[in-house]
Design a protein around this nucleic acid. Structure first.
Length: 496
DNA sequence: TCTGGGGTCCTCACCCTC
DNA sequence: TCTGGAGGGTGAGGACCC
């Protein structure tokens, strides 16, 4: 039986760069590169204008600047992207309760489950209407793929880019896939692609011809079976609306390799605090603490430790991370450090301890004579840092277990007192109003004063410590604040 | 001036218990 | 009492995705 093409895959075109272009009128139709601006930054997204110069995501920013010297390089503004993403996801949820977000700019929707489409014709109609609604609500273009499975719907949206819609008719899948590169299939990255290429397999058709046994022999059971099915166009994975997080982690790459062991220890403590902050924000605790170290030569190693029970206590995570660091040789230098927590739960050993105390109290009050069923010993031990015994960790003498005071400012404007102005960040001037930082250096900062609904604005330069200039929040792309005008329909494709 | 950050999933080795 | 295999938990690393 052939499935109706009612799985929809939505992909916002060059999302971060398109949001920047919609938000900064002077950048429309220009090459825009969003990513880390430090010496080790990489490109997160490039506008289609920048892609014409060979710039693509994951490319080192320095290389992108060489390829596209006139492109606007901007830091990501995740709070704005999240806000725009929320608008888009809300439109998807109007179509169906089964919406599976993959990232801020991508999602699957099961249209049939929402009763919004049941065949090719109704699916096409829904897809077109969705694209129009997204354009009206955000000013951005989106590409839509429609097919009978997630894999094919994703292939379809990829083919539809930019700003298009494609439906794969049931029965045409194999012929469509056959000439495509194996890299088209989800799960085939550089390593598997090269592995297959060495075996003479470069297209999906050749993959299907190789047969399941051969693929299992080449890439292992799980991957081989999956690849073979995908090559035949078979994919019965359902659209899953709710996915539980499995881990929480934070990591930092340093502009310069760290050599000083004390500094490395301090950074690990700082990362542990940030990680716990994120963990608590997500309402989780976790049992396994993971330390990640990338050395000067880019070799990466991880060390992990599993506690007796889940925790969200910063002191416990800090101490575990410190113990793990003791087992790592950092001579030669460290370029990245990370701390993560896996084995997530939505309770902590401390909760269990509290529960058991409550149960005991209740039992005593009832004077029933039955003992409490919950054993608190392990809880107390885990809460008091598993290393209390002879593990020889740096375990401080019971530091306060309070939440880390450090706010996580990754996508917030820099505090004014630091007077550092990252390219692309939002500012407001007491006289000239809202604008964005076009560049800064030698004690000066250049600001372009424009807003989403306005025509391209003028540029002015100030001293970096100008008291009238302040960091500010992003303005909405479409809405009341844009001088009453709706935002223009996303990037204007013209030769730059 | 090479190579981010935040994830998921899989495989393999090793140890322990039954 | 010793041995061997199965299976689960843990730790480490790799591949992949956006």
């Amino acid at each position: 039986m052939r499935a109706a093409p009612t799985i929809l895959h939505l992909d916002m075109d060059a999302f971060y760069a398109s949001v920047e272009q919609a938000s900064k009128p002077s950048l429309r139709g220009k090459a825009v590169i969003v990513g880390g601006l430090g010496p080790r930054g990489v490109v997160a997204t490039a506008s289609y204008e920048a892609r014409r110069f060979g710039v693509h995501s994951a490319m080192p920013m320095a290389q992108a600047r060489r390829l596209c010297p006139n492109g606007a390089c901007l830091i990501p503004r995740f709070s704005l992207y999240r806000a725009v993403s929320d608008v888009v996801m809300a439109l998807l949820r109007e179509l169906s309760p089964l919406v599976e977000p993959l990232s801020l700019d991508e999602a699957f929707v099961d249209l049939e489950a929402g009763g919004t489409a049941f065949d090719a014709e109704s699916a096409l109609e829904t897809g077109q209407r969705l694209r129009a609604d997204i354009l009206a609500a955000t000013g951005l273009n989106a590409s839509v793929g429609l097919a009978g499975s997630k894999m094919l719907a994703k292939v379809a949206s990829e083919e539809a880019k930019p700003d298009g819609l494609l439906l794969i008719e049931p029965g045409t899948e194999r012929a469509l896939l056959a000439p495509m590169s194996v890299r088209t299939l989800p799960g085939v990255g550089p390593a598997t692609g090269e592995h297959l290429r060495r075996a003479g397999i470069t297209t999906v058709g050749e993959l299907a011809e190789a047969g399941e046994d051969e693929l299992v022999r080449m890439v292992g059971r799980s991957h081989g079976v999956g690849l073979y099915r995908m090559a035949l166009g078979l994919d019965d994975r359902p659209v899953v609306a709710e996915r539980d997080a499995k881990s929480v982690s934070v990591e930092d790459t340093f502009d310069v390799d760290l050599h000083d062991r004390v500094r490395i220890r301090n950074e690990v403590q700082r990362l542990a605090d940030r990680c716990v902050h994120r963990l608590r924000d997500s309402g989780h605790s976790g049992r396994t603490i993971v330390l990640k170290v990338r050395r000067y030569d880019f070799s990466t190693l991880t060390r992990s430790e599993t506690l007796r029970g889940p925790t969200d206590d910063p002191a416990v995570v800090r101490e575990a991370a410190a113990r793990l660091l003791e087992a790592v040789d950092t001579t030669g230098g460290v370029r990245l450090l990370g701390v993560g927590v896996t084995g997530l739960a939505d309770y902590t050993q401390e909760d269990l301890f509290a529960q058991s105390m409550a149960a005991e109290a209740a039992a005593e009050a009832a004077a029933a004579g039955e003992g409490g069923a919950v054993e608190p010993a392990g809880a107390a031990e885990a809460a008091g840092t598993g290393g209390a015994g002879g593990s020889g960790g740096p375990a401080g003498p019971g530091g306060p277990a309070e939440a880390p005071e450090r706010a996580e400012p990754s996508d917030e404007p820099e505090p004014a007192r630091e007077r550092r102005w990252a390219a692309g960040s939002d500012v407001r001037h007491a006289v000239y109003g809202p604008g964005w930082v076009q560049g800064s250096g030698v004690g000066r900062v250049t600001v372009r004063f424009e807003r989403p609904g306005s025509p391209p604005g003028r540029v002015r330069t100030f001293r970096v410590d100008d008291p009238e200039l302040e960091p500010s929040d992003p303005l909405p792309l479409v809405g009341e604040s844009a001088a009453g005008e709706p935002a223009a329909g996303g990037p204007v494709p013209e030769e730059g």
